[in-house]
């Protein structure tokens, strides 16, 4: 069973969560052009290692949270509320 630490509820089983995508993408400026918006919507890095992701604790507190997960080992280094930043870097 994979446990995800919710900043509000504590460690909870992964099946209480939905994956909600890459938390590193930033919306471009309105005049950034078509290619920038194409990349924002569709282009993802698929990294091997640490990755910041959106998860929603849909069967718990219903909040969207940021989770830093290792895509290789599934280890979770940190989590934070939607308005809070994750730590700078994970070695």
């Amino acid at each position: 069973m994979h446990l995800i630490p919710c900043p509000y509820c504590g460690e909870r089983p992964q099946d209480e969560f939905h994956y909600r995508g890459d938390a590193t993408v930033k919306r471009p400026a309105p005049d950034a052009g078509e290619q920038a918006f194409y990349d924002y919507v569709y282009t993802r890095a698929n990294p091997r290692g640490w990755h910041d992701e959106w998860w929603q604790h849909y069967a718990g507190c219903r909040q969207w949270i940021r989770v830093r997960r290792n895509t290789l080992t599934h280890a979770v280094a940190a989590s934070a509320g939607p308005a809070d930043a994750l730590p700078e870097a994970t070695p």
Binding site: C9, R12, D15, E16, A59, G60, C61, R62
Partner: peptide
């Protein structure tokens, strides 16, 4: 107290 899943139900 916890919101969770019991028998596949929220």
């Amino acid at each position: 107290s916890a919101s969770t899943i019991v028998g596949h139900v929220s």
